[in-house]
């Protein structure tokens, strides 16, 4: 029966072909440093799952953001766990993505033919930092408020258009409800959309080109 269903699905979805190209392929023997990429993907997935569920109770408004997070932490069953994973996952992700970048650099894996993989990877690193920056404001506590105040102020020092950038980031001259709403939007829609599309290209290229080998002395 199971085989029948599998065959029916395979005929329509081409499961065998996917298995053949994605999973059942030979790759060079590599060391443990090469697990950092999948670790980044794993953490991104954890962030996505916990983040999605956090929005179930979180309210992006200065009046209620703090209270809604208190509610998540104190009253909702396992709210502390979901937020805890999301909070620590953010930091861990920055570390792992950065290490992944260093691994790629030190093994020279960004060179031909993997230039575009590197390119998308650097965008993913920047997006990760962007997620950290925007997500930091959302709890609307003292720490996040003042960090964002200074962070946006830094963007404001850019010559000529600094003031304009600052106003765009904050949605006005003040750090206000408008800022919180746009940071929220960036954090849950815009940046994730960027991340998902970059990950798709990144993954496609990894499957197409294979993971890089550890370079020998004469390479």
């Amino acid at each position: 029966m199971a085989e029948k269903i599998y065959n029916w699905l395979d005929e329509r979805l081409g499961l065998e072909a996917i298995y053949g190209t994605v999973l059942d392929r030979k790759v060079p023997k590599v060391n443990w440093w090469f697990t950092l990429g999948s670790a980044s993907l794993f953490l991104a997935g954890m962030q996505a799952v916990t983040g999605i569920f956090l929005t179930m109770y979180y309210v992006p408004s200065p009046d209620k953001a703090y209270d809604s997070i208190q509610y998540i932490m104190n009253d909702v069953a396992f709210g502390w766990l979901i937020r805890g994973i999301h909070h620590w996952g953010a930091s861990l992700m920055v570390v792992i993505v950065f290490l992944h970048m260093l691994r790629t650099f030190f093994y020279g894996a960004y060179k031909y033919p993997r230039e575009i993989t590197w390119l998308t990877g650097t965008f993913l690193l920047l997006f990760t930092l962007g997620m950290g920056f925007t997500g930091y404001l959302l709890p609307w506590n003292q720490r996040s408020f003042w960090a964002t105040m200074v962070g946006t102020e830094i963007a404001g020092t850019v010559p000529l258009m600094g003031d304009f950038i600052l106003k765009v980031l904050r949605g006005g001259t003040d750090l206000s409800a408008v800022t919180l709403a746009r940071f929220f939007s960036a954090h849950i829609w815009i940046l994730p959309a960027g991340i998902v599309s970059m990950i798709s290209v990144h993954m496609y290229l990894i499957i197409r080109l294979g993971i890089s080998n550890i370079p020998s002395e004469e390479e």
Binding site: V22, L23, D24, R25, K26, V27, P28, K29, G210, S212, N213
Partner: peptide, 11 residues
């Protein structure tokens, strides 16, 4: 790379 793959493992 082809040589490395030859000596390599399954994904």
């Amino acid at each position: 790379y082809a040589a490395a793959k030859q000596k390599g493992v399954k994904f």
